[in-house]
């Protein structure tokens, strides 16, 4: 259960102000959809949440503590592409998170420790429906399968926050709704907080418990550089019917 609070966040690249005065709090176990026009700084905001870059001003706190200064396993990420390692099979891609943690200096496991970790990784692969593709390299997986693999890879570290940058943008509608339900189920089961950037408003409202839009308030040509995007729109969204089902099922147990 993880709360995130963003306090007066500014981000500038040189002279260009990208984000300004970003303020919001999200309660634990939120699913936040981030929307906004191209180039308004959504990916930049995720990079700040990841500690991949540092904000020019302001602060992000997780459960009251400032963010750690480097990307760490407490925050998982799925990028739009290049999220999985091309030289590892699907199973190895999921396994590697455990190997970094338990494999010591070499970051490799052997013998029993390896078999145990493989069994664990297999569960995550099964969870995203990729058990059959365990021995395949990412290049022989479809786009949707690669994204599901990236999700399993991130989840095995049990992150408290999951960051998704247009994760489903390249998927066709059928697969997309499958992956949506998968995502909602995993979000519900793990109780993590999710931030998802998307260009698809339907997706944003369907998945999110909250939808935040970034946009520039001033749009005149000569002002573009000097004024960044800020929160233009912030609204709660009803959980998807699928989540209500999950919740009732959980309550019934």
């Amino acid at each position: 259960m993880t709360e995130v609070s963003v306090r007066n966040l500014w981000m500038e690249y040189g002279d260009q102000i990208v984000l300004e005065r970003i303020n919001f709090d999200v309660p634990a176990h939120s699913f936040v959809s981030l929307v906004g026009p191209s180039g308004c700084g959504k990916s930049t905001f995720l990079r700040l949440l990841l500690s991949q870059e540092n904000a020019t001003r302001g602060q992000i706190c997780v459960d009251g503590e400032p963010l750690l200064p480097n990307p760490e396993p407490d925050r998982g990420v799925v990028f739009q592409k290049y999220s999985v390692f091309p030289h590892l099979t699907a199973l190895e891609n999921v396994l590697i998170g455990l190997e970094f943690e338990r494999g010591g200096f070499s970051g490799r496991l052997h013998g029993r420790a390896k078999r145990n970790a493989q069994a664990e990784a297999m569960q995550y692969l099964e969870g995203v429906g990729l058990a059959d593709a365990a021995q395949k390299y990412p290049s022989s997986l479809s786009g949707g399968m690669q994204q599901r693999l990236a999700i399993a890879q991130a989840l095995i570290k049990k992150p408290r926050i999951l960051l998704l940058d247009e994760p489903f943008g390249a998927l066709d509608p059928g697969i997309r709704s499958e992956v949506h339900d998968l995502m909602l189920r995993l979000w519900w089961e793990t109780k993590m907080t999710v931030f998802m950037v998307t260009h698809d408003l339907r997706e944003a409202f369907y998945l999110g418990t909250r939808v935040i839009a970034f946009d520039r308030v001033r749009k005149r040509e000569e002002e573009l550089e000097r004024y960044g995007a800020t929160i233009a729109f912030d609204t709660p969204s009803d959980p998807a019917p699928f989540v209500t089902e999950l919740a009732t099922a959980e309550a019934a147990e």
Partner: peptide, 8 residues
């Protein structure tokens, strides 16, 4: 970045 979030 991904590797770092996996604890590398």
């Amino acid at each position: 970045v991904k590797a770092q979030t996996l604890g590398a």
